[in-house]
Design a protein around this nucleic acid. Structure first.
Lengths: 124, 124
DNA sequence: CAAGTATATAATCATTTTGTTATATAATCA
DNA sequence: TGATTATATAACAAAATGATTATATACTTG
């Protein structure tokens, strides 16, 4: 019995199958973010966030680029299942409020880059 | 930082994140199937299939009912994220051929119930 | 240059997961 | 009734996972 290869699909869902990673992707759907922002948003330790991001990056779901002293992570538009991923993320409650909130409140203690600026940078 | 609860979503994707389970759901999207059919289709052992189905059932994604000597498993239309699940399954290559094939070929050695009959039973 | 910030990674550990083997149960059949 | 079929489940082992602790690197700043 021959099966079509669904491994890349399975991998995508496996990544979505962890609540922290699901939140991470939901946040990155709103804006590119640095590791320290995600620490705050996810309420996780720096190594936990960093390794979680590495795993997502290895699957091709996200990418990163350096902006000043920060490594900015974003969804990867070149990802094989990007459209499907976005469709899934769109059906979750939006993370916009939370993402904006860390700028508004004093929580963004370390990384000072503005969310709006990050949103701008991504498009260029 | 308050987060919406995405645990039920995460659980769904975790289930989809295993290739055997992903195939299982793809098969059940085509027809209700008994355990022995799934053994053939998935090329897995009986206990492996049975435990995999139990896990899917515990999440609410599938249900089962007895038909003659067989336990017929189907997607659960009452599942909280049923529409989303179907949307995801629709984007995968169809399993129709494979599901029909086990009836056509002599592979369906044990369970003799016809796929078409199962499809019919589900609707009633 | 010393200190601090941002991030990555390695080692380790606890937990979870998945499959196998073995066994139980219920129904059917010869 | 004894054998077979269909399925479930428990016990166990192997593998994968996710987090923490500790450390490394690169950059910036006083």
């Amino acid at each position: 019995m021959k099966h079509p290869d669904l491994s890349s699909h399975a991998v995508m869902h496996k990544m979505l199958g962890d609540e922290k990673r699901l939140h991470t992707l939901r946040f990155l759907y709103e804006a590119g973010l640095c590791v320290c922002d995600l620490e705050t948003l996810l309420d996780s330790s720096q190594p936990a966030v960093s390794q979680s991001l590495r795993k997502l990056k290895q699957t091709g779901m996200i990418t990163s680029h350096k902006h000043d002293q920060w490594q900015i992570y974003t969804l990867n538009k070149e990802y094989a299942h990007y459209d499907q991923l976005v469709q899934i993320l769109q059906q979750l409650p939006s993370a916009k409020e939370q993402v904006d909130e860390i700028t508004a409140s004093g929580l963004r203690t370390r990384c000072s880059i503005e969310i709006t600026e990050i949103r701008f940078l991504e498009k260029s």
